[in-house]
Design a protein around this nucleic acid. Structure first.
Length: 793
DNA sequence: GCAAGGTC
């Protein structure tokens, strides 16, 4: 009897597959990930199934070991440094190999997206040598994890698509090279130049940096906002014997004298003429069920939960069986999903059970027609009842949020009665409107999250057109001032990231968390609004100043578009990667050559901070200058307040002062350098005498030999700091405008390379050639003699 | 110490 191996992307899907395919009792072995064994049918014959899973990617991409050490190479070498696949989890690979032994068929049940396709090829690589000779390999495509969909997938098996996998490998390689090269360069350069810089890493990434850009951009909009006064008439209309506020149809007026003249006329008139008088009904459709980004936005707005915390709770609720899989783009229920059963599950709940029971009793629930089926996982819904007390704290609140949203999504529209009366008062139109809730529909269950409750109708009896109600208007207009936008909320940031394709539903929370961990952004716990820190502002504006395209969201779009070419079979991976790497290497060289423009901003913030100098005390004395040096943390280094020189110290390890003993070579005071050896309780700290000056000099010699820049060696800027700060302030003012200005023409751009590529005669297959203003890269040159992008000429 | 993408 044949043995058939199925591999899913996560244990829960392996469980579902086993449940759907088993024709006998299922025996489960192994811890994480587990393997299910049972009898079933495959290709019309009886077979033995082994169903197991991986845990996401089996391999991670990294540089070859020689390039992982920060001091091992110059960051510019990373553009063509070798990269290698590193297994991400040994037990997953072992399990795959053991399970694959003697199997006659491999069915790849990975998620049906690009990443899943890449994992499918990893699984093939790992299992290939263990499968029986001549074993067949199949790709299962499922749109929902239900028995029906799984059986359908088994009946319509296809082949894995290597182009999708290649696109993922290209994306991994580009993210690695770009992120690590830029991060090492900025970290090294600025850390060894500014002692006031209190951050371990100055990171750059094609997702995290545009995310930071969103936050800084909003802050700049607020900072450069110029409030403008405006005026409007303060009018009221008599309605059923009482006066009600009337809204001026034109809204507001920025010319005070015009508004004043208008008010004088209206005040003198005293009587208005009804020109429009209508009553009607309107409805509001219920919200769609949650996909991941909608859940993150609501959790931040309603529960004050960060996206990372929201995902953490959602994952736990999923693993405990209370919620469906929380990472999905889909907000349309699959036709196979039993909505009635899901509603019934909630009918006994003390909080929303009455609403659910009412829907069932009247058969009033319905399957929403709108929404997107992204083909990944169903919307996020409750999968088991959780009566009050079963869950606690934020997990309970998140379950409440998801369940109410689910019930709302299958509920009826809310219905309103609307009244609208428009009048003419001294030649100007004013409006009185009222909306009253008639039938709450889905709003009933969204309480307490609903915000648009409305009172009773305003007009007991609508006036007729041509009626002449009394009106009053203040003789002087009301004055108000335009207000700047608010800081970016976490929910706004998630929405911007989704809109610009920054990160995925699964990774968006980590990017926001990242910019916070890097001390670039701070979150106000109460309002969940994001504020850039001094460091975040300087880093972002620095990049923006030298090459805006590194910060703007197009940097991610360009990488994605390049990978799309591979996925669509329009260009081979090697050519696309080479094209993009050359592009980013040019940007790197430009940044390194013009880093002084970034330094001017850092100068204003970090070069000279009297409070820093005052709060530190002399730690060690330099033998060459006789100056007392301060110890600066994160990362630990010595700082000479007189010369602004920085002396790098080894990492990891601790340093302590050593009672005036001096280095025999340079006469500097020696330090005690402590390094922990071993792990846990057995760890011992070995202590060595260390000369900071000699260590720093050796480090600089080593970097110079490797061609790395050695910041601080030749700047000689000790006396010019004051002038630098003035320049920096002027630059900061100019920068607030730079979001709107075209990028620096000197900076290498994706557009320029695209045009060059276009001249070589490559364009998108079947589509128009890239326009010069497009940031979408055109397919790069294919290696000669092999199937690549065809020439359009 | 570094990216972003899966998942735990």
């Amino acid at each position: 009897m044949d043995i058939v191996m199925c591999v899913a992307e996560k244990p829960s899907i392996a469980d579902a597959i086993a449940k759907a395919l088993a024709k006998s009792t299922v025996s489960t072995r192994g811890g994480s990930p587990r393997t299910h064994e049972f009898r079933g049918r495959f290709g019309g014959a009886s077979c033995e199934y082994r169903v197991t899973s991986v845990l996401g990617h089996c391999f991670n991409l990294d540089f070859a070991p020689a390039y992982r050490d920060w001091d091992g190479c110059d960051p510019s070498e990373l553009w063509d440094a070798p990269v290698v696949r590193v297994p991400s989890n040994g037990s997953v690979l072992r399990n795959l190999r053991e399970t694959a032994k003697d199997c006659d068929a491999l069915v790849l049940f990975l998620d049906c997206d690009r990443e899943g396709e890449a994992i499918a090829f990893q699984v093939m690589d790992v299992t290939q040598s263990e499968l029986r000779p001549g074993a067949t390999v199949h790709r299962a495509k499922f749109s929902a994890v239900t028995p029906a969909d799984i059986e359908k997938a088994m009946a319509t098996l296809g082949e894995p698509d290597e182009r999708l996998s290649e696109a993922v490998i290209a994306r991994q390689e580009l993210d690695l090279r770009v992120g690590v090269a830029f991060t090492r360069f900025t970290t090294r350069h600025f850390q060894s130049k500014y002692a006031g810089l209190d951050a371990r890493t100055l990171s750059y990434g094609p997702c995290q940096t545009p995310t930071l850009g969103f936050v800084v951009r909003r802050e700049d909009e607020i900072a450069t906002f110029e409030p403008e006064p405006y005026w409007f008439p303060d009018a009221a209309l008599e309605v059923d014997g009482a006066f009600a506020d009337a809204t001026w149809a034109r809204g507001r007026c920025f010319d005070r004298s015009v508004a004043a003249a208008l008010c004088r006329g209206a005040a003198a008139a005293g009587v208005a003429t009804v020109v429009e008088s209508t009553a009607g009904t309107s409805t509001k459709a219920p919200p769609l069920p949650f996909n991941t980004v909608d859940l993150l936005k609501a959790a931040s707005r309603v529960l004050r939960l960060s996206p990372a915390m929201a995902m953490k709770h959602a994952e736990h609720l999923y693993l405990d069986g209370f919620l469906s899989y929380p990472r999905t783009e889909t907000n349309k229920f699959p036709p196979s999903m039993d909505l009635r059963a899901a509603i019934e599950q909630q009918a006994g709940d003390a909080r929303w059970g009455a609403h659910a029971a009412d829907l069932l009793e009247r058969s009033a629930w319905r399957r929403p027609k709108r929404g997107l089926d992204a083909g990944d996982h169903p919307p996020i819904t409750p999968t088991a009842p959780a009566p009050p007390g079963v869950l606690n704290g934020k997990a309970a609140a998140l379950y409440d949020l998801v369940t109410r949203r689910f019930l709302a999504s299958v509920s009826e529209d809310a219905a309103y009665a609307d009244q609208r009366v428009a009048v003419d008062l001294a030649g100007e139109r004013f409006v009185v409107e009222r909306r009253a809730l008639v039938a709450p529909g889905f709003l009933d269950v969204l309480r307490p999250h609903r915000d648009d409750d409305a009172g009773p109708p305003l007009f007991l009896e609508l006036p007729a057109v041509g009626a002449r109600p009394r009106a009053k208007c203040a003789a002087a207009p009301r004055e108000a001032t335009t207000r700047p936008p608010e800081r970016l909320s976490e929910a706004d940031c998630v929405a911007l990231m989704e809109k610009h394709g920054i990160g995925t539903d699964a990774s968006i929370p980590s990017h926001i968390e990242n910019v916070c961990k890097r001390l670039y952004v701070a979150v106000d716990g109460k309002s969940r609004r994001l504020r850039p820190t001094e460091l975040g502002t300087v880093v972002c504006r620095g990049f923006l100043r030298v090459d805006a395209s590194l910060v703007l969201p197009e940097v991610r779009a360009a990488i994605e578009a390049a990978c799309d070419l591979i996925a669509g079979g329009e260009a081979p991976r090697e050519a696309v990667v080479a094209h993009c790497v050359a592009n980013f290497a040019a940007k790197y060289a430009h940044l390194a050559a013009h880093v002084d423009a970034m330094e001017q901003l850092f100068d204003a913030v970090y070069a000279e901070r009297p409070e820093d100098d005052a709060s530190r005390s002399a730690f060690s004395r330099c033998g060459l200058t006789g100056h007392y040096l301060h110890l600066v943390p994160r990362p630990q280094r010595l700082y000479d307040p007189a010369t602004k020189d920085v002396v790098d110290l080894p990492r990891p390890g601790s340093v302590a002062a050593s009672n005036g003993r001096r280095c025999p070579a340079c006469r500097s005071e020696l330090l005690w350098y402590g390094l922990r050896d071993g792990a846990g309780d057995a760890a011992k700290t070995a202590t060595y005498p260390l000369c900071g000056a000699c260590y720093d000099a050796a480090l600089r010699r080593r970097r110079r030999r490797r061609g790395a820049p050695t910041p601080g060696d030749d700047d000689g800027d000790g006396g010019a700091v004051g002038a630098g700060r003035a320049r920096a302030r002027a630059a900061l003012r100019a920068l607030a405008r730079s979001w709107r200005e075209p990028p620096d023409p000197r900076a290498p751009t994706l557009e320029r390379r695209t045009r060059r590529a276009g001249r070589r005669g490559y364009s998108r297959r079947g589509g128009p050639s890239s326009s010069p203003s497009s940031t979408r890269p055109s397919p790069p040159a294919a290696p000669s003699g092999r199937g690549g992008a065809p020439s359009s000429s």
